Simulated assay, not measured.
Amino acid sequence: MHTERINIVITCDDDFIQHMGVMLISLLKNTTEPQNINIFFLDHGIKQQSKDSMNRICSDYKATIHFLEIDGKLFEDFYISHHINQVTYYRIIAPLVVPRNIKRVIYIDGDVIVEGDIKELFRIDLNNKVLGAIPDPYGIERIQELNIPNSKYFNAGILLIDVEKWNSKNLTKKLLDYIQNNNKLKYWDQDALNANLYDLWEELSPEWNYQTAIALNKEYSELSPKIIHYTEPQKPWQIYCRHPYSDRYYKYIEFSEWKQYNPIPNKIQQLLKEKKYKYFIFGTGELAKSFYTKVSDDKIIQGFIDNDSKKWGSLFENKHINSPNVINEFENIRILVCSSYFEEIKKQLESDYYKIENIDFFKINIDSNQFP
């Protein structure tokens, strides 16, 4: 009896290997047949240490992984911006570089958590289309500019691809030519895929690509996501991520070699260990809440400070919200400002009204990697 192999294509650079590893663990833990998972890692020269991490994960679940060497020079002149590098373009050559006997693959980004059985996605009928995908709510603005006639735009983070149909239409070359002639694509290869495959994709249920915008839409509140996709710049491994399922990342990191990871920068973690100080968080918004929940010992934080007098005396995360006057009651205070108005707050508290001789200020950013 022939054993069905579930073919998964992934790629990332060394800086992203932890998050790709957590994704892979979630995928393998939630399938009933991890031994039948075939991973193809598009490798452009990642370190051996990163490969070892991927190999250990696959070995733990008896899955198979293959590293396919990619020449990154092909994409050197392609448009990149923000947190995106050339690796994003690798997915368009995946059908061309996997072994010839492979008929179908699932491409998966690294900023996702898989909670459904991936073989269910692999078996979906594509109705003679080249690929299956899920619409991207943020892509509506691109439809007119890209001249997409059917008014639909998909997210390329999770793709179910019919390899034979893709290659028979020579789509990799078509896409590479398109990108080279359109070097300012806002959403990189995703724009190119939508502009060229607008009539070749089958729309799948959003449960298979539960993007942040979908998760925040009340219309989909009853949907149980099978693949959670953190599509905004703020990711769950940073101090703040507004995806409702950001906690799932920490559920699966517990099964990994990165389980000691903490998004709070080391500098702040070390500061919080200095017992002679009293620590207050300035702000009572989502960033303050997220930062507080990631502090390993909640007893360190004395309470919160807010300028809104209506909040004074009430509780936030089971800690009291105080007037800024509270800083006059203590010596050696450290204020952790969880607000985009850091400079204004610092200037306010440095006024003559407050006793500030022994106060230190620290700005907490949404992205922990941006900590000054």
Rank of each mutant, 00 (worst) to 15 (best):
E254Y: 09
F255K: 09
S256G: 08
W258Q: 00
W258C: 01
K259G: 03
K259V: 12
K259C: 13
Q260E: 15
Y261T: 07
N262Y: 04
N262T: 04
P263H: 12
P265F: 04
N266M: 05
N266T: 10
N266I: 12
I268D: 01
I268P: 00
Q269W: 06
Q270D: 08
L271S: 06
L272D: 10
K273Q: 14
E274F: 06
K276D: 14
K278R: 14
Y279V: 10
I281Q: 08
G283S: 07
G283T: 05
T284Q: 09
T284W: 11
T284P: 04
G285V: 11
K289N: 11
K289A: 13
K289L: 15
S290R: 02
S290D: 12
S290V: 05
F291E: 00
F291N: 01
Y292D: 01
Y292F: 15
T293G: 00
K294G: 00
V295P: 01
V295L: 06
V295M: 05
D297N: 15
K299V: 04
I300Q: 02
I300F: 07
I301Q: 07
I301H: 10
I301R: 07
I301Y: 10
Q302V: 10
F304Q: 03
F304Y: 12
I305E: 01
I305A: 05
D306P: 03
N307R: 08
D308R: 09
S309T: 15
S309A: 14
K310T: 14
K310I: 04
K310A: 13
K311E: 08
W312I: 13
G313V: 08
L315M: 10
F316T: 08
F316G: 02
F316Q: 08
F316K: 05
E317C: 13
E317Y: 04
E317Q: 14
N318M: 08
N318E: 14
K319R: 14
K319C: 10
I321W: 10
N322V: 02
N322S: 11
N322H: 15
S323L: 09
S323D: 14
P324Y: 08
N325V: 07
V326A: 06
I327R: 06
I327S: 03
I327G: 03
N328K: 09
N328P: 04
N328V: 11
N328D: 15
N328Q: 09
E331H: 10
E331A: 10
E331N: 13
E331L: 10
I335S: 03
L336E: 08
V337L: 05
C338F: 03
C338R: 02
C338D: 00
S339V: 09
S339C: 07
S339M: 09
S339H: 06
S340D: 11
Y341C: 07
Y341Q: 12
Y341K: 12
E343I: 12
E344M: 11
E344V: 11
K346T: 14
K346D: 03
K347R: 12
K347M: 06
K347Q: 12
L349Q: 03
E350Q: 15
E350D: 12
E350L: 14
S351W: 07
S351D: 10
Y353H: 14
K355E: 15
K355P: 00
K355R: 15
I356K: 12
E357W: 06
E357P: 00
E357V: 05
N358K: 13
N358Y: 03
D360N: 14
D360L: 14
F361S: 05
F361C: 06
F362Y: 11
